[in-house]
Structures are given as C-alpha cells and as structure tokens.
Design a protein around this nucleic acid. Structure first.
Lengths: 127, 127
DNA sequence: AGCATATCCGACAAATTTACTCGGGATTAC
DNA sequence: GTAATCCCGAGTAAATTTGTCGGATATGCT
C-alpha cells in the first residue's frame, strides 16, 4: 500500500523506479520486486523496462481502491475460508461464520471506499 | 468463538465441561484448555473444578460481545502496531495507517455489535 | 477415605504464513 | 554498448498460529 501511494504521488513526473520506492519507504528492493509482480499481474501497474523506466498506474488514482491493492497482493479479503455454503455439519461453525462474513464485508467496504488519490492526499497533508 | 457459543447455549443446564465442547466442535481438549485459560483470565468465564464442574459465563450472554471474546484470546483488534502517534518519519506510513485504523475501527464495531446471545440464536436457527 | 471427573499450568513441538534473499535474464534510453 | 531498469523462479529465515505433553490441584460422590 505504501509503495502504491508513492507511485500515485509521483507518476505524473514519469515512471517511478522501484529503487526510489525502496529508498523512500525503507523496504528492500528485492522484496518490493515481488510485490510489484503481483500488482502488475493484477493489472494495477504497468512496468516499463530499461533506462528511465519504472512503474505507472494503469488507471487514474481515483479509480484504484485500497481494496484492489490488498486483493492484488493478498488475495480475497475475508477472515474465513469456508465453501460449505449452507449445510454445515457443525452448526456453531456456521453461526460464527455469519459473524466473520459480516466483519469481512465491513472491511471490504472501508477498503473499497478509499482510493489511491485519497491516500496520496492524506500523505501530502501530513507534510 | 465456537467454544463460547457452545457454553452460552448450554450453561443453563449447569457448568459446561471442556470435554463436551471439544467433542462437539472437534477441537482437541488440550488445545481448548489453552483457550479457556485466556477466557478465564479475561474474566469471561468461570472454571469450576472437580466432578460436575465445567465452565460458565461470568455475565449474561447478551452482555458479552464477540469483540470481548476476540480481545481475550487474540489481544487488541487492530491491523497495525504503531505507537508513533502523530509525527511519523515516513509520511506514507502514516497515510496508510489512517486507512488501517479505519478498517480496524469498523471491525471492532461489527464484533462489538454481536453478542453471544446473538450467536447462540443464529446457531439454533441453523438446526 | 478413595476415586473419578474436572480445571489449572508451564513448557515444548509442529505447521503455516509472512517476510525476505539470491542469482540471473530481458528490455530500453542514451 | 552500456547503464538502468523491470522480469522471474527458487530458495531461506522469521514470526505466528496451532497443537502436544506431563503433571498438579480441586470437587462431588459413594
């Protein structure tokens, strides 16, 4: 999320190289590469190779939500993995699952309610 | 949570022994012991020793929230551990932290909005 | 008193997930 | 052609979660 915020803040000055993000956020470049791989596969960023290369967003910052970013790197936003839709053997499991589903839903709502533009704006406000 | 739901559903018939919960929910008794230890230390249950012993809730089921249970066994409900309240060195960290705090808050709201009575009721409805 | 049924407790071990590293290949601007 | 940069698979380390082991202590019942 920090990496994407940096990209959102600086992409108008051209592609943002991974090395810059690594320095700004004190994250190892090699670890970041992995993360950008996920982001690229989820089509949230374009990677431009070669000198003067770097990453840019595939869409305007206000159309990419925090939820999109989380889903790209961590998969579906949910607290439980249960495919028995309906007839659970253990009844109490299902009762608690209903709770976890509600929690997951509210997490998604909050995360999908904040865009990269919001994050960039908040970040600038902190300066 | 499943264990607490079972206790809430059955405590009116006297203390609920751990062994019963273990069987009903297919959780090893030894692992459950650890969990009940946390619940007891958080004063959510009373453990009565000896024959005919078991666990009972310390308060009415409608006054214990799912959030209480989660906090008892897993600690504070939050996505980030950050004590720099205010002046973060890395600006973007703080911007994302604002997001994580909002998510955490909404999780707490949902979890504190459901009581053990609710869970027990949902569980009964599934039968 | 003796025994079966229980909770209590500390320490340890296995499994899973998350975080991170390594080494090299491919592309592009200048 | 060379420096900068992304691309990629495989492997390692750290942290967390989940679970086990062995025994001590308390209680109700006969």
């Amino acid at each position: 999320m920090r990496a994407m915020t940096v990209v959102a803040m600086r992409e108008e000055q051209g592609p943002v190289p991974l090395r810059l993000v690594a320095e700004m956020e004190a994250i190892s470049a090699q670890y970041l590469e992995q993360i950008f791989m996920d982001l690229r596969r989820a089509k949230l960023v374009n990677g431009q190779r070669g000198a003067k290369g770097g990453y840019t967003l595939t869409r305007p910052a206000e159309t990419i939500t925090a939820g999109d970013v989380v889903r790209a790197v961590e998969g579906p936003i949910k607290l439980v993995d249960c495919d028995h839709d309906g007839g659970c053997l253990r009844v109490h499991v299902c009762a608690t699952r209903e709770l976890w589903n509600k929690v997951s839903e509210s997490m998604r709502q909050v995360m999908d309610g904040a865009t990269l533009l919001d994050l960039a704006t908040w970040a600038r406000a902190k300066n």
